[in-house]
Amino acid sequence: MISLTSVSKSFGSGARRTVALDNVSLDVPEGDIFGVVGQSGAGKSTLIRTVNLLERPDSGSIRVDGQELTALGDNDLRVARQGIGMVFQHFNLLSSRTVQGNVEFALEVIGVDSRERKRRAAEILDLVGLGAKASSFPSQLSGGQKQRVGIARALAARPRVLLSDEATSALDPETTRSILELFRTINRDLGLTVLLITHEMDVVKTICDSAALLEAGQIKENGRLVELISTPGSRLARDLFPLGAIGELPGTTVIDITFSGGNADRPVIAQLARDHAIDVSILGAAIETIAGNQAGRTRLGLPGDARSNAAAIADLRAQGLLVEIVGGAAA
C-alpha cells in the first residue's frame, strides 16, 4: 500500500549537512498497522513526512496505493494527499473553529457541500466518541479529546491510509491506550492501512502488525512482529521483551528462550531437568500478546560453561525454540 524505495533526504549543506534519511526502503502491506521506532533524531518524522510529500525527498520513489507521488504536479499531489490522512503529535487543530468546524475543514478542502459536511462530520465524531463535544472549541478539550478530533479530521475525507507522527506522545498512558484502541478500530472497521511513528515500544507491542527500526536514517530491522520475535539477535524483539541487564553470574551460562505461537506452552524447564539433569534457575521472564499472539521470553541460568551445556541447548533448538546465549562463564 505504501512503498518507499531508496528514499534519501538531507538537510543543510556543507559542514552543517545532516542526512536524515539514508537510502530507506520500506513496504507497508495493505491493511497493516506498521510501526516505525527509533531514537530522537533518527529521522522518523522526516520519514513519515515524505510519505505524503510534506517533505520532498532528494531521491527515491514513493508509491501510495500504486501511485508514484514524486512524479505528480501540484494539483494531482493535492488530490493524492486527500487520500492520505495524517495525525500529529501536537494535534494542530484550528483554534478559531469548533470541533465540528475542524472536521468540516477537511471536507471543505475536498469540496463537499454544507449539508453533507454537517452530516459526515457528525458521523465521524460519533465514530471517535466525541459526538457530544461537536460545538466545543479545541481549547476546551483534554489532550486525548483533541487527538480524537485530529483523528476525526484525518478520517473525514475517507482516506485509505493513515499516517501518525507520535500521536500519543503527548498523552498519559490511559489516554494513549484509548487512542491506540481507536486506531485499531479504524484499521479493522474501515480497512485503513496505518503507518505510525513512535518512540514507545509499548505502542508497537499493543497495536502493530509489523515494525521497522530506524537508526541514523537507516532501516536496521524490518518485518512482521511474529517473525521478528523469532529472529536471533533482533533488537526490536529484545526491546519488545525487556528482561533487563544481565548480571554477573560466575560459572553460569545465561540463555534467553523465546516462545511464540505453537511452542508457547512447552514445559522446557522440567524437560531440561529431566533429560539433561540440569538445575535450571529462572532469571527473568516476560509474556506479551504481540500482534494477537501469545509470545514470551524466559531467561535461564544453566550451571557450567556454554560447552558443557551445548547438548541441552542443541536439544532445545531442535524443538524449534529460539535460544540465544546472552552471557555466561567462559569456555
Binding site: N52, L54, R78, V79, A80, R81, Q82, I84, G85, M86, F88, H90, N92, L93, L94, F105, A106, V109, I110, R153, A154, A157, L163
Partner: peptide, 12 residues
C-alpha cells in the same frame, strides 16, 4: 503545524 495539517489534507 496548522498549515502543515492543511497541506496534509490536500488544501490549496
Amino acid at each position: 503545524g496548522l498549515s502543515e495539517a492543511a497541506h496534509s489534507l490536500g488544501a490549496s
